[in-house]
Computed example of a mutant assay.
Amino acid sequence: MRSARGLRPARRTRRPGREGAAACRALQETDPELSPEEKRVLERKLKKERKKEERKRLREAGTAAAQKPPARRSGAELALDYLCSWAQKHQDWRFQKTRQTWLLLHMYDSDKVPDKHFSTLLAYLEGLRGRARELTVQKAEALMQELDEAGAASPDPLLLEKTQRLRQVLQLLS
């Protein structure tokens, strides 16, 4: 049986098992006439087989780390680290829109942005430019109106703290 090119017999492809992976390696090393596409296919099969064997080894070892993905940090932690990094003027600090957005959305909530970080956040907001600054002022003014209306009905300590933060932001940006 000849292949489409007519140069050598067509090979049947099959999933490499333990003996199959070794056969693929041997075939790849001994057959220099493999086309680049055939080499890529063989390399993918070998890589897949290695990953499968690695997972099996980890499963047999029973390591807890292999079964549980590493713990991911929350958006709050990442945003506050970003803010602290900015404040310390680290060489590796870079602007990150998602972190800035998180900070702008949650800056009035003292549970998410503690008081010890709020003064740093105010300093960060001083450098806010363009549309982000305009939107922050607009949202703060709208929220201030809502809180003034709601605050007249019942004096809630959380609302008072939020109002105080709003006033500081408006005073800084306006």
Rank of each mutant, 00 (worst) to 15 (best):
S3M: 09
S3T: 09
S3D: 12
A4W: 08
A4I: 10
R5P: 04
R5A: 10
G6M: 14
G6Y: 14
P9G: 02
A10G: 06
R12W: 07
R14K: 12
R14F: 06
G17K: 12
R18I: 02
G20N: 03
A21I: 09
A22Q: 05
A23C: 01
C24K: 04
C24Y: 11
A26S: 11
L27Q: 15
E29M: 07
T30D: 07
T30Y: 03
P32H: 03
E33N: 03
E33S: 05
L34Q: 11
L34G: 03
S35K: 04
S35G: 09
P36E: 15
P36T: 06
E37D: 08
E38S: 10
K39H: 06
L42T: 08
R44D: 13
K45P: 00
L46Q: 10
K52G: 03
K52T: 08
E54T: 10
R57W: 02
L58K: 13
E60Q: 15
E60L: 15
T63N: 09
T63K: 04
A65S: 02
A65T: 03
Q67M: 09
K68S: 08
P69H: 05
P70I: 12
R73L: 14
S74V: 09
S74T: 15
A76L: 07
E77P: 00
L78Y: 01
A79Y: 02
D81Q: 08
Y82G: 00
L83G: 04
C84G: 08
S85Y: 04
A87G: 07
K89N: 14
Q91M: 12
Q91G: 09
Q91D: 14
D92V: 13
D92M: 14
Q96Y: 00
K97Y: 13
K97L: 09
R99N: 14
W102F: 10
L105I: 00
L105H: 02
H106E: 02
H106Q: 12
H106R: 05
M107I: 05
Y108H: 09
Y108M: 11
S110Y: 02
K112R: 12
V113F: 00
P114D: 05
K116F: 07
H117T: 03
F118K: 06
S119N: 15
T120L: 13
L121T: 00
E126P: 01
E126I: 12
G127L: 09
L128T: 02
R129K: 13
R129P: 00
G130W: 13
R133Y: 01
E134V: 14
T136G: 07
T136C: 15
T136V: 14
V137I: 15
K139W: 11
A142N: 05
L143K: 12
E146N: 08
E146I: 07
E146H: 04
L147H: 05
L147E: 10
E149Y: 05
A150D: 14
G151Q: 08
P155T: 09
P155I: 07
P157E: 10
L158A: 15
L159S: 04
E161Q: 15
K162D: 01
Q164L: 12
Q164K: 12
L166W: 04
R167D: 11
V169H: 01
L170C: 00
S174Q: 15
S174E: 15
S174T: 12
